[in-house]
Nucleic acid binder design. Structure first.
Length: 868
RNA sequence: GCCUCGAUGGCGGAAUUGGUAGACGCGGCGGAUUCAAAAUCCGUUUCUGGUGACAGAGUGGGAGUUCGAUUCUCCCUCGAGGCACCA
C-alpha cells in the first residue's frame, strides 16, 4: 500500500477492476431481491454540470448501499437527447442538431464514467435514435386509435416577424427573443393526450405513494386541482344578443349565486368574439388581450382590466339582467372560460367591481359581519348563513347548496359537476429536433396513423434549422407520402412531439433496452418495475413526474406492464448554488466573474468583507449566492475538480455539504476539507497495514478505554445505517464516520487487542464509506487484507452490546433552564435521580426562597425542577 | 397573481416522539514542527458583560400553547422552486 493518498492511481485501479469483471452489469436473476435505482437522465447539453454530479452521486450511493444489502441492483444511464438547445446550437454554429447531440453524449459519457458510477452501461440508450422513438410512435398510433390522443386547436406564442412559434422561454417581456417583435397568441391545430381522463386516478393513487415527499404530492394534488361544484347556466337575453342560448359557468360557490352582479368571460370566449364584431372599442380590447405570450405567470400578474360587451344574460334564479364583461383575469383554459362574478365574496371579483363601479351585494353573513366594505378582507370569502337571498335566507352553507342546486336542476339551468384544473396535454411542437408525430393527413380519410409496418417515421439527421419555422415543413421528401388507407397522395405530419414524451417512459425501456419485439419485454419490465428509488431535481416535481405517472398507467392499460405507479420512492434533490461576483459597467450592465478568479478578504472573525479579482487586484461586488448558471458565471467545472482532487473527494464533498433535498453551496475550502479527511483515512490505514495482521478481536475482555473505542465504532455503524439506509441524510452519515476517525486516530496501538480493535475500526470506515467514496474504499479494503472486493462485501452489522454504558449523564434544569449535570447509574430509579438533583448545589442556589411545585423526570435525559 | 418549500454562529450545516441549541466540517485566532514555506499536529472559537468562577441573551420578526418550543398553532417579512412550449 502506497503511503501517500494518490487518487489518480487508486481511482484508475478501482475502475479497471470493476470494468474487467463487468461488476455492475445485471440480469433478471431469479430468486434474488431486486432494487431498481434510477436518476433522472441528463440532457446532453455539452458537458456535465455540478447538478448532474450531485444527482448521480446520490443515486450511486443508494445503489451501492443496496448492493451491500445483498440485492440485485439495476442502475442504468441514458440520454434525454431531443430538445431545443440542440437547435439553438445548430443555428449558432451551423452544425446539425444530431451531430452536436451525439458528440456531446460521447464527451459526457466519459465524464460520467470518471465519477465511478455503479452503472450498467450495457443498457445505455439515447432517445433521439429511431431504435428508441419508434416505440414512442408505435404507442402513439395505438393511443390515437383508442381516442386517448385527439386533435383540437390550441393557443401558442406567435412571432409575427420570424413567422414561427416560440416556447415560453423564448418570450421575454412579451417580445420574441430574437426578433424583439411583440408576440401574439395564435390558435393552431395540435394533438392532445387525454390526461384528464386519468385525473381522478392520478389524484387518488398519490395516496399509495408513502415513499414520496409530502411536498411533491401536495403540489401534484393542487395541480390536478379537483373542485366539486356546479355548472350554472345564464340564459341569454334575446333582445341584447339577438339569439337564444345559455352562458355556462362553473362555480364552487353556488351558495353565493344570489350575490352575482355580473358575468365575466375570457377574451377568446365566443360571446366576446360575437360582441366584438359590432363594437370596435371592445374589439380593440380583445386584440390587446391577445398580445403578449401565453405563460400563465405573465397573464396572472397583469393589471386586471375589463370592458363591458353591451350584452346581457339573465340571472337563473331571479331573472334579473346581468351585464357580460370581458375580463383579462378569466382564463379560457379553465372551466368554461366564463365566471359568475360575486364581488362581495370573491377577492378578484371584488377588486374588479371596485375598479369599474359594479354593484357589490353581500349574501353571506361572515365573521366580518353583514357588509363588505373596502378594503377586501379574507373573511368575506368565508362560508356562512345566507342573507339578502329571498327564500334562501338564514340557510347555512350546506342547506343553501342543496336548495339552490335543487331549484337550478328543476329549471334545467344547473347541475352538479366536478371540475379539474388539470388540462389535456398538448404535445405538438412546430420544431425539427424531436420525435416525428406518426400521422398522415389524407383529404379523403382524414388523420391516419402510420401503420405499424411503416414505423419508425425516421427524422432526417443532416438538417440545420434556421429559426424560421420547422425545416420538415419545407422538405417535400419528408412530408410527401401516400395515404396508407386509400393510397392517394397525402401529407405527412411535420410537427414533432414534446420532449416530455420521451422522458415519460424511458424508465420502462431500461428493463429491456435492446428488445426488438415491442416497447418493453413484459417479463423484464415486471421483473424490475416499479423503480424502487427515483432521484432528480425538485424542478420536476409537477410536470415530468405527472406525465411519467400518466404514461405508466397508459402502458399498464395497453397490457405492457402490471404495476400502477412508476416510482415507489422519490428523492427530490436541491440545487447546487455558488457565490456570484460582478462589476457594474458604464452602460449599467453587469460583468460576472467566476468564483475561481476571485480572492476574498476577511475581517478578524473570518467574516467576508470584500472580494478582489485575482488578476488585477481590484475589488468586485459580492452578488449573493445563486443557482450555478452560465448567465451569472458562477459555475464550477466538475471536470477540473475531479482532475485536481479525484472523484472520491468530489463525491464526498457533495454528500457532506448538505442533505440531498436541500440546496448545496459550493465551497472550495470545503472540497479541500473533504480531501484532507480522505488523506487522514489513507494515512492511518497505511500505517496500520504496515504492521502484522492482528489476531481476532476478543470483544468480551476489553478494558474500559477499549470499550469506549468499540462503542465509537458501533455508534458510527448505527448512525450511518439509519442515515444512508432510511433517511437519506448522507451528510450526517459522513459526520459519524469523521467522528469515528477522530477516535481511531487517538486510540492506542500498543497491544494486540488495540490493533485488532483498530482493524475493526478501519474496516468499518472502509465499509461505511464504500457507497460514498467507492474508489478509496476499494483500495482500503484490499490493504486491510481482503481478497474479495468491497463492492461484494455486506454492510457492517451493529453489535448492540458494544453500545451499552454503565452510567449516564443527565441534565438538571430549574424552570426549564440548564443548571447542572448529573452522573447516574444507567438504571437508576426515578426517586434516586430526583433526590440527587434536589441536592445539586446550583439547584439549591436557584431555588433559594422559592417553593418547588413540581419535578419532571425524563428517564435517561433530564430532571426539570419547577419552582416559584 | 396562484401552488409548494425554506430561514439556526463568521460560513455549510446538526439536534428520535417537544427535553443539554450549535454534532461534523469550513473559516478565524493562538501555539508546535520547519532555516523558511507547504503539509501536518495541538488548543480555542454563538453573542454581550466579567481577569475569572459565572451571569444574561440567543434558532428571520411578532403573538400563543407548555414545566420545557429550532420542533406545535396563528400572523408577518424575506428567499427559492413550479405555473402547462427550458429540461
Amino acid at each position: 500500500m502506497q503511503e501517500q493518498y494518490s487518487p489518480r492511481d487508486i481511482e484508475a485501479a478501482a475502475q479497471a477492476d470493476w470494468n474487467q469483471t463487468n461488476a455492475f452489469q445485471v440480469s433478471e436473476t431469479p430468486g434474488q431481491e431486486t432494487f431498481y435505482c434510477l436518476s433522472m437522465f441528463p440532457y446532453p447539453s455539452g458537458k456535465l454540470h455540478m447538478g448532474h454530479v450531485r444527482n448521480y452521486t446520490i443515486g450511486d450511493v443508494i445503489a451501492r448501499y443496496q448492493r451491500m444489502q445483498g440485492k440485485n441492483v439495476l442502475q442504468p444511464m441514458g440520454w434525454d437527447a431531443f430538445g431545443m438547445p440542440a437547435e439553438n446550437a445548430a443555428m449558432n454554429n451551423k452544425v446539425a442538431p444530431a451531430s452536436w447531440t451525439y458528440s456531446n453524449i460521447d464527451y459526457m459519457r466519459t465524464q460520467l464514467q470518471s465519477l465511478g458510477l455503479a452503472v450498467d452501461w450495457s443498457r445505455e440508450f439515447a432517445t433521439c435514435t429511431p431504435e428508441y422513438y419508434r416505440w414512442e410512435q408505435w404507442l402513439f398510433t395505438r393511443l390515437f386509435k383508442r381516442g386517448v390522443i385527439y386533435r383540437k386547436n390550441g393557443i401558442v406564442n406567435w412571432d409575427p416577424v420570424d413567422q414561427t412559434v416560440l416556447a415560453n422561454e423564448q418570450v421575454i417581456d412579451g417580445k420574441g427573443w430574437r426578433s424583439g417583435a411583440v408576440i401574439e397568441k395564435r390558435e393552431i391545430p395540435m394533438y392532445y393526450f387525454r390526461i384528464t381522463d386519468y385525473a381522478e386516478e392520478l389524484l387518488t393513487s398519490l395516496d399509495d405513494l408513502p415513499g414520496w415527499p409530502e411536498q411533491v404530492k401536495t403540489m401534484q394534488r393542487n395541480w390536478i386541482g379537483k373542485s366539486v361544484g356546479m355548472e350554472v347556466q345564464f340564459p341569454y337575453d334575446v333582445d341584447s344578443i339577438g339569439g337564444e342560448g345559455r352562458l355556462k359557468v362553473f362555480t364552487t360557490r353556488p351558495d353565493t349565486l344570489m350575490g352575482a352582479t355580473y358575468v365575466a368571460v375570457a377574451a377568446e370566449h365566443p360571446l366576446a368574439t360575437q360582441a366584438g364584431v359590432t363594437n370596435p372599442k371592445l374589439q380593440a380590447f380583445i386584440d390587446e388581450c391577445k398580445r403578449g405570450g401565453v405563460a400563465e405567470a405573465d397573464i396572472a400578474t397583469q393589471e386586471k382590466k375589463g370592458l363591458p360587451t353591451g350584452l346581457f344574460v339573465r340571472h337563473p334564479l331571479t331573472d334579473e339582467k346581468l351585464p357580460v364583461w370581458v375580463a383579462n383575469y378569466v382564463l379560457m383554459t379553465y372551466g368554461e372560460g366564463a365566471v359568475m362574478a360575486v364581488p362581495a365574496h370573491d377577492e378578484r371579483d371584488f377588486a374588479f367591481a371596485l375598479e369599474y363601479g359594479l354593484p357589490i351585494k353581500p349574501v353571506v353573513r361572515t365573521s366580518a359581519g353583514n357588509e363588505t366594505p373596502a378594503p377586501w378582507q379574507d373573511a368575506y370569502a368565508e362560508k356562512g348563513t345566507l342573507i339578502n337571498s329571498d327564500e334562501f335566507n338564514d340557510m347555512d352553507f350546506d342547506s343553501a347548496l342543496t336548495a339552490i342546486g335543487d331549484v337550478l336542476e328543476q329549471k334545467q339551468l344547473g347541475a352538479p359537476r366536478t371540475q379539474f384544473r388539470l388540462r389535456d396535454w398538448g404535445i405538438s411542437r412546430q420544431r425539427y429536433w424531436g420525435c416525428p408525430i406518426p400521422i398522415i393527413h389524407c383529404d379523403t380519410c382524414g388523420d391516419v396513423p402510420v401503420p405499424e409496418d411503416q414505423l419508425p417515421v425516421v427524422l432526417p439527421e443532416d438538417v440545420v434549422p434556421d429559426g424560421a419555422g420547422s425545416p420538415l415543413a419545407r422538405m417535400a421528401e419528408f412530408y410527401e407520402c401516400e395515404c396508407p388507407t386509400c393510397g392517394n397522395k397525402a401529407r405527412r405530419e411535420t410537427d414533432t412531439m414534446d420532449t416530455f414524451v420521451e422522458s415519460s417512459w424511458y424508465f420502462a425501456r431500461y428493463a429491456s433496452p435492446h428488445y426488438q419485439e415491442g416497447l418493453v419485454d413484459p417479463k423484464a419490465a415486471n421483473h424490475w418495475l416499479p423503480v424502487d428509488q427515483y432521484i432528480g431535481g425538485i424542478e420536476h416535481a409537477i410536470l415530468h413526474l405527472l406525465y411519467a405517472r400518466f404514461f405508466h398507467k397508459l402502458m399498464r392499460d395497453e397490457g405492457l406492464l402490471d404495476s400502477d405507479e412508476p416510482f415507489k420512492n422519490l428523492l427530490t434533490q436541491g440545487m447546487v448554488i455558488a457565490e456570484t461576483y460582478y462589476r457594474l459597467e458604464e452602460n449599467g450592465g453587469k460583468t460576472w466573474f467566476n468564483p475561481a478568479d476571485v480572492t476574498v478578504e476577511r475581517d478578524a472573525k473570518g467574516k467576508i468583507i470584500a472580494a478582489r479579482l485575482t488578476s488585477d487586484g481590484q475589488t468586485v461586488e459580492i452578488g449573493g449566492v445563486e443557482k450555478m448558471s452560465k448567465s451569472k458565471n458562477n459555475g464550477v467545472d466538475p471536470q477540473s475538480m475531479i482532475e485536481q482532487y479525484g472523484a472520491d473527494t468530489c463525491r464526498l464533498f457533495m454528500m457532506f455539504a448538505s442533505p440531498p433535498d436541500m440546496s448545496l453551496e459550493w465551497s472550495d475550502t470545503g472540497v479541500e476539507g473533504a480531501h484532507r479527511f480522505l488523506r487522514r483515512v489513507w494515512r492511518l490505514a497505511s500505517q496500520h497495514a504496515q504492521g502484522e495482521r492482528p489476531a481476532a478481536l476478543d470483544a468480551a475482555s476489553l478494558s474500559d478505554d477499549q470499550k469506549a473505542v468499540r462503542r465509537a465504532i458501533h455508534l458510527a455503524i448505527k448512525q450511518a445505517s439509519q442515515d444512508i439506509g432510511q433517511n437519506h441524510k448522507f451528510n450526517t452519515a459522513i459526520a459519524a464516520v469523521m467522528t469515528l476517525m477522530n477516535v481511531l486516530e487517538k486510540a492506542p496501538q500498543a497491544s494486540g487487542q488495540d490493533r485488532a480493535l483498530l482493524q475493526e475500526g478501519l474496516e468499518t470506515v472502509a465499509l461505511l464509506l464504500a457507497p460514498i467514496t467507492p474508489h478509496i474504499s476499494h483500495g482500503l479494503w484490499q490493504a486491510l487484507g481482503h481478497s474479495d472486493p468491497v463492492i461484494n462485501a455486506p454492510w457492517p452489522k451493529l453489535d448492540e452490546s458494544a453500545l451499552v454504558q454503565d452510567t449516564l449523564q443527565l441534565v438538571i434544569q430549574v424552570n426549564g433552564k440548564l443548571r447542572g449535570h448529573l452522573e447516574v447509574a444507567a438504571h437508576a430509579s426515578r426517586e434516586t435521580v430526583e433526590a440527587a438533583a434536589r441536592l445539586n448545589e446550583n439547584v439549591l442556589r436557584f431555588t433559594e426562597g422559592l417553593s418547588i411545585r413540581k419535578v419532571i423526570v425524563v428517564p435517561g435525559k433530564l430532571v426539570n425542577i419547577v419552582a416559584n
